[in-house]
Design a protein around this nucleic acid. Sequence first.
DNA 1: TTGTAGGCGTTATCAC
DNA 2: GTGATAACGCCTACAA
Lengths: 330, 330
Amino acid sequence: MHPPTVEDVARAAGVSRQTVSNVLNAPQRVRPETRQRVEAAIEQLGYRPNRVAQSLRAATSRMIGYRIEPMHPHALGSMHDRLLHALAEAGRAADHHLLLFTADDPLDEVANADALHRAGAIDGVVLYGIQSADPRPAGLRQLRIPFAAFGRTGADDAHPWVDIDNTAGTAAAVDHLVTREHRRIAFLGYPEGVAVGDRRADGWRTALDKHGLLDGSRHLDLRGEDSLATGARLAEALLDHHTPPTAVVAATDTLAAGVLRTVRQRHARLAVVGFDDTPTAGALDLSSVRQPIEAVGHAMIRALLGPGGNEPAGQLLAPELIVRASSALP
Amino acid sequence: MHPPTVEDVARAAGVSRQTVSNVLNAPQRVRPETRQRVEAAIEQLGYRPNRVAQSLRAATSRMIGYRIEPMHPHALGSMHDRLLHALAEAGRAADHHLLLFTADDPLDEVANADALHRAGAIDGVVLYGIQSADPRPAGLRQLRIPFAAFGRTGADDAHPWVDIDNTAGTAAAVDHLVTREHRRIAFLGYPEGVAVGDRRADGWRTALDKHGLLDGSRHLDLRGEDSLATGARLAEALLDHHTPPTAVVAATDTLAAGVLRTVRQRHARLAVVGFDDTPTAGALDLSSVRQPIEAVGHAMIRALLGPGGNEPAGQLLAPELIVRASSALP
DNA sequence: TTGTAGGCGTTATCAC
DNA sequence: GTGATAACGCCTACAA
């Protein structure tokens, strides 16, 4: 009734346990004839190696911890879902699985990861939503828990991380809008001090400067919390300006959606480009900078498990601008 | 350097391994004096029982499998996130964790769950997104893999399930709108044949009938795919009717958001109630029927792990109407 | 090429 | 009340 073990397979194939183990882990060491007999027995009994026993023996769980957060109340649909799927998919290829755990805050996350790690339940951890002054990297490093982070802190990160090139993303948005003959291009972003937000603002500023348009647009830089209401409100402010912009680069789709709301209400003309390419962007026909989350997932898993064992190297991935109707000519 | 084991604790406390084990698993069997000494050693060494060894010994992984799907392309932000968090939280209380895996389709999901189960990596599975004729329950039952399902198939389900009372949800929406003096109340839903959609339509129909309003509204029943565009289009159709409704009950927030778009574009007056209470509902000031996902998570874990071992009992949970500005007087 | 022995960390059983 | 023994299923030496 219980699942078959190596023992059962061995008996069925008329060999010893070890030979079965060899067939699985060092096939070249076993005579083809014997191997086929063993393989037939494995097939017939439906044998699968017990991962728990493997883990105990190898002192390796092949599990990666991930803190699942309650959904961000304002976000239109975070990257969470996509990242989780990408990580699970990438992990599968490396024969690892994700183990979900909860935590009240970043410090609690480190504590819970430590407990799981010491209990042998996870080999390492993947960090999401890295903040400028994030306590988690230092905490995990001190506890010697392998990890990889999606995103960077403000400082130079001396641990494995993967990030998308936020600066390049907003720069691409600006380039695109310039091609479409826009000359006054605003930016809507996070309050200063949020690393991601600052990088996205940088891309906008740098690209405008490159096109010689910064002087005419420098004042069109508005910040606020990441919500639809804020996007709508800031858009009003932009449109009420005496030299209003003809286009806006928003730091998130949520802000961009707010802009679109105002634009429609006021029947204004204002091109918009968002960031993240959330499902909503498609629904609203919103041009948006898409993060290559699948690639991020693979890079994270590689950084965590890869050769050299969790080396402190960073990797920057290029986002891609998805052009839709919202970024038309002025 | 390696984490301490019972052996280490035993040595430190001057007792045998067994006594340490007893302190942890049968404290009453050990003399208080000895217990305190052992507990001190545990504390001092920072000992944590190795879960892998426990699993091997107990033939129980304390892991629950969950298939992570790529995000639904049209959804505004699915229940996925919330459910995952709720399950993780509920699992934690029962000392279980979620293990994420991927699959190409429902059959593949069953196959992968089977592989993990046979490998001893998971004790059971939680099913999400149950369809009318879902092959998973039968498949898992045949493989004797414990599971609990969120949602019901069309037939009477002979397995553990948890569902929210969809019928009661839309009925509550209708009641609310009637209280607000609406008399012609439309329904926007999934195409017939989708179990969830049919139940939500039922609630609308039944409640209207109860209020004696069904005859005047029977024709105001429109169906389509779950997308913003569909919601907007169907709203146009409703408003163009020669006796247009003054209110709409939508089967999802996505459809409801589409309705709101049309309403705003046409400056029409039309009360709207959505379903799911997604983050977007809050942003749009949309009244919506909220699913008690946290309770669902707990009920699922209980159904899966509870006493009696995965008994085929169902549980229906009541949703709650969240009233916001979109359901004002006509 | 194949088999034998031992141990990963835990706990249940059964003596003492 | 405490401790020795054995077993969960696997794998890695080492011996034959």
